[in-house]
Design a protein around this nucleic acid. Structure first.
Lengths: 203, 203
DNA sequence: GCTTTGCGCTACGCGCCGTAGCGTTCAACG
DNA sequence: CGTTGAACGCTACGGCGCGTAGCGCAAAGC
């Protein structure tokens, strides 16, 4: 158990420890899922004492949430593509790709149960992840209405749920793979209901 | 402490024990969710020794799954209403109502994580719950095509995911309530994409 | 009645969570 | 430099829940 010399990677001792813990958590989360994550395991891989973890995060769930939210928040805002369908497809596709990763897919599946168990955690997740996505849908819908692609009375909330619900349904319940064309098919299944007279493009 | 007399409710001793355990599991599942379920708790409430439970089910998860599948399988096949939209709404609505129950909602949320953790359990769930629903959607779509309400090339798989995805998304991630009009709004958001020329009825 | 089968009970071993106390290292500052 | 306070490592717990073992006892079946 030699002690590391000071030239580590950089940053203060505190931030180095912090990063080591978060990295180890990410790795173990990817390997074992939320289920298999143990504080002891994180401590061992990070080369850190268990107590050091508990000095920063009050519980295992809090640690896991911090990492999870951080992962999900890496969020690409959709640029103006001058076509509402293209923008929606791009948006859904980014989610499909992220969740299609073994890492995020597994993590997300495990997360849901923790959301059910811990209302505090559920609130944080809704505020920082779901709300962000809802806001982005609002933006896209707004643009679409101005462009004349979408009906002015388009239900933004429903649009959001119709776009992402099926993706998560696959991930968590049906078990069907998140293949490439999925985003496109989902968007085309929703668009006609919200598109203005000009029935834009399905197939 | 106090042995029950033989006049119980009926059935052999074995089946009485069995029912007591399943009932206790159902109750605790409703009160505490899959997370909070403990074999010790079930044993205590059922008035049964822990070992008696392990003699019938090999693990806690196996016990929980038996109860869960049994609960979800209570399934109403949709009668012919002579209108495809009405039938789809009725179908989705039955799911909304069941999941809207505190009991099933909580249980379902907790179940998802176990599905991720236990592939065996996930397989059983898909085969006995998801597959049943897929088959029912197929039936409805078939009827709808014959009636001329739906396009002959309607994607049954996608239809199924578009109908139930949003419901589960609310239940598990967005946290929005499963209110009454939901089924109708979801169906109307999907129908135009699959409806034949006669753009049946949205609002 | 007597056997067989099932049950209750106690007692474990294990893994993991989260906490306490104490000695040691690090890093900033005089 | 040398000192000092904060952060860290380590060991040792208490608690809970899973799943198992072995024994004595009750209930069905013959």
């Amino acid at each position: 158990m030699g002690h590391e010399r000071a030239e580590e990677t950089e940053g203060s001792r505190a931030s180095r420890r912090r990063e080591a813990i978060l990295d180890a958590t990410r790795e173990l989360l990817a390997e074992l899922g939320v289920q298999g994550l143990t504080v002891e395991g994180v401590a061992a891989r990070a080369g850190v004492a268990k107590t050091t973890i508990y000095r920063r995060w009050r519980s295992k769930d809090e640690l896991a949430l911090a990492v999870l939210i951080d992962m999900v928040e890496q969020f690409v805002s959709v640029p103006d593509l001058d076509d509402t369908r293209d923008e929606l497809v791009a948006f859904v596709e980014s989610a499909v790709r992220i969740l299609g990763t073994t890492l995020m897919g597994r993590v997300m599946r495990g997360l849901v149960s923790d959301l059910a168990a811990d209302p505090e955690l559920a609130r944080a997740f809704r505020e920082r992840v779901v709300a962000t996505r809802v806001a982005e849908v609002h933006r896209l819908v707004e643009r679409g209405i101005e462009r004349g692609d979408l009906r002015p009375d388009t239900d933004r909330e429903l649009m959001h749920e119709m776009l992402f619900g099926p993706v998560y349904y696959r991930l968590m319940l049906s078990g069907a793979p998140l293949e490439d064309g999925l985003a496109e098919r989902v968007v085309d299944a929703v668009l006609p209901a919200f598109a203005s007279q000009s029935l834009a493009s399905p197939r």
